[in-house]
Simulated assay, not measured.
Amino acid sequence: MHATHDTEPPVPFAIACAVGQFLLTILILKFGFSLAPPEAYGKVKLVAFASTILYPLVLAHAFGLWKRLALGLDRIRPEPVFLASLSTAALFLPWGLRSVDAGKVLSDVTIQFFNAFGEELLFRGVIFALLLSLPVWRGIVLNGLLFGAMHLIHGFMGTDWKTACWQMLVTSIAGMMFTAVRYRTGSLWLCVILHMALNLCMIYSNVHGAAESTVFMVERGANVIEIALAAWVIFSARRTGTAPAAA
């Protein structure tokens, strides 16, 4: 029997879902690296990677959220907020793209698709559905913060905590934009496409070979657009008094 998520407090429930994925990923990596030989570390990472897709699928089934995940292909429409959000990725393109072989590109596109799909399925799918009863501004801010907090996992895996906390901040801002796109378009797939496009442009852009000040300006410019789009969706919802096309 499915859990009756509509009767549960949405915020604690959403936090519990995010914490569950956080702990599951750390446990897989920590125990895997401690038990497996170095040559098998790739397989350990693959198991952790797979968990980011399987875990939200299990939650969606357990909570009866399939119809609220917005996976219908008919929802894939070029809404203005989605087109505007692509400018965050476009900011990285004027410096050109790194030259790599076709096999590497295909591998990276595949990895980034499944990475984006897993994260969006959890945060803009399951957790979004749980927070849908909240005012739009609270849903966008909380979803973004939970998404950013997930990236603190890097601090537990060897990254210095200053860098991990900075990653949390910038990914929280990006998460707010992803959530705003989800609210406005009602499509999870558009969030996946946006997430994947932004990651790939950041990975392949030659901007990282430019001056440090240039990299800083491009990255902060993307953050400004992300905040502005999230604020626009929040303002639009408050002005009209109705929620956007969220589900």
Rank of each mutant, 00 (worst) to 15 (best):
S133I: 13
M217Y: 14
V136Q: 05
G103T: 05
V192Q: 06
H195W: 05
V215A: 05
H151T: 08
V109M: 12
W161Q: 10
I173C: 03
E79P: 05
S51N: 00
R238H: 14
W189N: 11
L130S: 10
A197M: 14
A149H: 08
S133P: 05
S187K: 07
V181D: 05
L152D: 07
L57W: 12
P56G: 08
F216R: 12
L91T: 10
N223R: 11
V19W: 10
S87C: 14
K162N: 15
F128I: 01
V47Q: 09
M157D: 11
H61F: 09
S205G: 02
A48T: 03
G139W: 04
F117Y: 14
L122K: 03
V192N: 11
I203E: 02
A247T: 13
A228N: 04
L65I: 03
T179H: 12
W189S: 01
T52G: 07
A48D: 08
S187Y: 00
A211K: 10
M202T: 14
T242P: 05
M217F: 10
G42E: 09
A164C: 09
A174T: 10
R77K: 12
Y183C: 01
V11A: 02
W232V: 08
C165R: 10
F49G: 01
G64A: 02
A116R: 06
D6E: 15
V181N: 02
E119F: 02
S85V: 13
G158K: 09
T4E: 15
A231Q: 10
A197C: 10
G209S: 03
M217A: 15
W161E: 06
C165W: 15
D74M: 02
G103F: 08
F31L: 15
R98M: 04
I28S: 11
A36G: 07
F113V: 01
S99N: 06
T214A: 09
V11F: 01
A50W: 06
L200D: 01
A230E: 04
T88H: 02
G186E: 05
G139V: 00
E8V: 14
S187F: 03
L131W: 09
W95H: 13
F216E: 12
L132H: 15
D6S: 15
M217E: 13
